[in-house]
Amino acid sequence: MTTHSDTLHRITAIVAAVADRPADEIAPESRLVEDLDLDSLQVVEIAVRAEEQFRTPVDDALLAEQEMTVARCAQVVAEAVAQGILT
């Protein structure tokens, strides 16, 4: 079972890699588009990498929502994992 802290840490690492920034520059409240200047393709890349790491489908449309933060990304992924476990 993955903890929220572990999920947040792993998503932060994914976002840092996609944004080509050090992980310590990525805060939970960092917004993907507004703060990190990611484009829609990079957001899809985050979803794909999360799917690979967590072995569950992640809806990239959810990650593309306006004002999406790194913490909210982790929550979306955690919910996707939970749904996969429950089904």
Rank of each mutant, 00 (worst) to 15 (best):
Met1Val: 13
Met1Ile: 04
Thr2Leu: 14
Thr2His: 05
Thr2Ser: 14
Thr3Trp: 05
Thr3Pro: 13
His4Ser: 09
Ser5Cys: 09
Asp6Ser: 14
Leu8Met: 05
His9Asn: 10
His9Asp: 12
His9Leu: 07
Ile11Lys: 00
Thr12Trp: 01
Thr12Leu: 11
Ala13Lys: 04
Val15Gly: 08
Val15Gln: 08
Ala17Val: 11
Pro22Ser: 04
Ile26Gln: 00
Ala27Met: 11
Ala27Lys: 09
Glu29Met: 09
Arg31Met: 06
Arg31Lys: 15
Leu32Ile: 11
Glu34Lys: 15
Asp35Phe: 06
Leu36Ser: 02
Ser40Val: 10
Ser40Gln: 12
Gln42Ala: 14
Val43Ala: 11
Glu45Asp: 14
Glu45Trp: 05
Glu45Ala: 14
Ile46Leu: 03
Arg49Asn: 08
Ala50Glu: 01
Ala50Ile: 02
Glu51Ile: 10
Glu51Asn: 15
Glu52Asn: 15
Phe54Met: 10
Phe54Gln: 04
Arg55Val: 12
Thr56Asn: 05
Thr56Val: 10
Thr56Ile: 03
Thr56Trp: 02
Pro57Glu: 10
Pro57Cys: 05
Val58Cys: 04
Asp59Pro: 07
Asp60Lys: 14
Leu62Cys: 06
Leu63Ser: 00
Leu63Ala: 03
Leu63Cys: 03
Ala64Val: 12
Glu67His: 13
Glu67Asn: 14
Met68Asp: 02
Arg72Cys: 09
Arg72Lys: 13
Val77Trp: 01
Ala78Pro: 14
Glu79Lys: 12
Ala80Pro: 02
Ala82Asp: 15
Ala82Ile: 14
Gly84Tyr: 04
Leu86Glu: 15
Leu86Ala: 11
Thr87Gly: 13
Thr87Ala: 11
